[in-house]
């Protein structure tokens, strides 16, 4: 409460009565309510439906092949799933997977974004191609990368052998310590161009005069990046970090197609684990429990994001 009031006063626009969440008159409020209500209502319904479904399933012993035949077993499914070491293995892998991918994507995305925001012909042409990897569905991309990584038949290994960096093919996807990271590279490859594009657009949305002013003040490129560009792109960057986190955390196909969670479950992340439970063991209830774990992990990240964003709002409007 206290924090809320503070943020309102800090941005200097909290002039109206407390019932009115928008800045402005009643006619404006009507516009905003009409703009927001249908979408938000739909979302509420969707979340309600999804939560209800997952919760109901998680309390049942139910076969994927026959959803309506479940028997309520209370918390037994939770007990069963949480007591398994494979569940915690999947949680650990998921955290490495999310962390590794999101950090790579963010670093590459911001760097590439700064480059792409230039108004030169070269940067413009490059920018046009950034979305090309998305022409293909994830499954196909994953199959393609699996081909790239193959120990005996892969393009990467033949290149490394030809350049004499290796004398025989290395099983990137079949090795306990490299499998998950090899897939992280693929996942980052898929997402960093999107990130870059958004960052570039963010930079271009801002008045170029800001940069001109900076340069006139004698700021070095590094100072300009740190003190002008970063604050400017912060909202979009944070949003993209959040979106990437969600996309990466919910991504099934890359690991599923490239390693199948192997070797020895070394790359089995939560979505792959819950897919296995649902479609190999036909244990839909257990799979619902795992997806609740996944949602909880993401929820924590979501909370951190929202808190962080509020702080940022205060800073930029001071």
């Amino acid at each position: 409460m206290r924090a809320d009031t503070k943020s309102v006063t800090v941005d200097g626009r909290g002039r109206h009565g407390s019932w009115n969440f928008f800045r402005g008159r009643r006619e404006e409020s009507l516009f905003f309510i009409l703009a927001l209500a249908p979408g938000l209502l739909l979302f509420l319904v969707l979340i309600g439906y999804a939560l209800l479904n997952l919760a109901l399933l998680s309390f049942q012993q139910v076969s994927t092949l026959n959803i309506r035949s479940g028997a309520f077993v209370g918390l037994a499914t939770y007990q069963e799933v949480l007591g398994r070491p494979e569940t915690w293995n999947a949680v650990r892998n998921s955290l490495v997977w999310i962390g590794g991918s999101v950090v790579t994507i963010t670093v590459l995305g911001v760097g590439v974004g700064v480059f792409l925001s230039r108004s030169t012909v070269i940067a413009r042409v490059t920018r046009a191609f950034m979305l090309v990897p998305w022409v293909l569905p994830g499954v196909v991309v994953a199959a393609l990368w699996k081909w790239v990584y193959g120990s005996q038949t892969g393009i990467l290994n033949s290149f490394l052998i030809q350049t004499e960096l290796l004398d025989r093919g290395f099983p990137w996807l079949g090795n306990l310590s490299t499998a998950l990271f090899a897939v992280i590279v693929t996942m980052s490859w898929r997402l960093f161009p999107l990130f870059g594009l958004v960052v570039a657009s963010a930079i271009n949305t801002v008045d170029r005069q800001l940069y001109e002013a900076g340069r006139l003040d004698g700021a070095s490129p590094w100072q300009a990046f740190w003190h002008i560009t970063l604050p400017v792109i912060r909202p979009q960057t944070l949003t993209m970090i959040l979106l990437s986190t969600i996309w990466v955390a919910n991504n099934l196909v890359f690991v599923h197609v490239m390693t199948g969670g192997g070797p020895l479950r070394a790359s089995e992340i939560l979505p792959v684990y819950l897919y296995r439970l649902a479609f190999q063991n036909y244990a839909l209830g257990e799979s619902a429990v795992v997806s609740i774990i996944n949602v909880l992990i993401l929820l924590i990240i979501g909370f951190l994001y929202v808190r962080n964003l509020r702080r940022q709002v205060q800073v930029s409007f001071l």
Binding site: R13, G14, F21, L44, L242, I246, V290, S291, L298, L309
Partner: peptide
Amino acid sequence: RGRLLQPVQLLLIIVQLFNGPAL
């Protein structure tokens, strides 16, 4: 303003959490 923005943002985030294989 203030009070409503945060829950709405959280709502937007939560919707997407469910866009996974589970659903």
